[in-house]
């Protein structure tokens, strides 16, 4: 009798809370809809010639799933360092209730200000990951580096280290993307890097490595190139 009651309770809890299932969010940096590989040449009309990328590395934090304006699920791990050089970092695996309804994913592109003043952190936030400024306290939210001939810098090397958490140069961006295909277990996020280059003039803007008004604008451009893959 006792066992029957336990079984009934277990059955009810499954029905009430739903079963958990594995899902993931993966990131795909692209040029001309082609997936970017480190140090490979790509031709694009956004630069006059070929472009290649040495670093595409950024922080995704506070990932939330929403149904309209209500948050229905939040990822437990707060900060994720996504690095094109580390394939395993390009995908965030997690478990979610099977029947949970959501129509939006929301996350921060960057590291929140509280973490920026919290001292030495571990794991994805360890300052040895090359995403912490050394001459000034603060995380780099997005690091984009590479080479294109139209960049006037030494060795044509462009460097965008976008960060800064203090007013008025807070470069953290909130990204909200609508999700229409609810059946898919995988959420694929396209990052159209060529879209970033469309918004800047590489002949004029190619080395940005400190917090400023320009950095904030570039961070906004960067946030605008994230979209859900069709």
């Amino acid at each position: 009798m006792k066992y029957n009651i336990i079984l009934v309770i277990m059955f009810l809890s499954f029905s009430v809370f739903g079963q958990m299932e594995g899902r993931n969010i993966s990131f795909f940096p692209t040029v001309n809809n082609q997936l970017i590989e480190i140090d490979k040449n790509y031709f694009s009309d956004v630069v006059t010639d070929s472009i290649n990328f040495e670093t595409i590395r950024f922080y995704v934090s506070d990932v939330q799933f929403c149904y309209d304006e209500n948050v229905v699920f939040s990822l437990e791990k707060k900060h994720h360092l996504v690095d094109l050089e580390l394939p395993e970092s390009m995908k965030i695996d997690f478990e979610m209730e099977q029947d949970l309804k959501f129509n939006k994913i929301k996350f921060n592109l960057g590291v929140d200000s509280l973490t920026n003043v919290g001292g030495a952190m571990r794991g994805d936030l360890d300052p040895s990951n090359g995403m912490y400024w050394t001459w000034q306290s603060g995380y780099i939210n997005f690091k984009l580096e590479g080479v294109t001939a139209s960049c006037p810098a030494r060795h044509h090397f462009f460097q965008f280290h976008l960060g800064g958490f203090q007013s008025p140069f807070n470069s953290l961006q909130i990204i909200e993307l609508p999700i229409t295909n609810l059946d898919s277990k995988d959420i694929k996020i396209n990052i159209a890097i060529d879209g970033f280059f469309k918004k800047i003039k590489i002949k004029e803007t190619y080395e940005v490595m400190s917090p400023s008004q320009q950095t904030v604008e570039l961070a906004q451009f960067m946030a605008s190139i994230f979209s859900i893959s069709k």
């Binding site: 001292g119 300052p127 306290s137």
Partner: peptide
């Protein structure tokens, strides 16, 4: 420039 003693040595 540095907001926390832990991060000072990095500079």
């Amino acid at each position: 420039a540095i907001n926390h003693l832990d991060m000072q040595a990095l500079a």
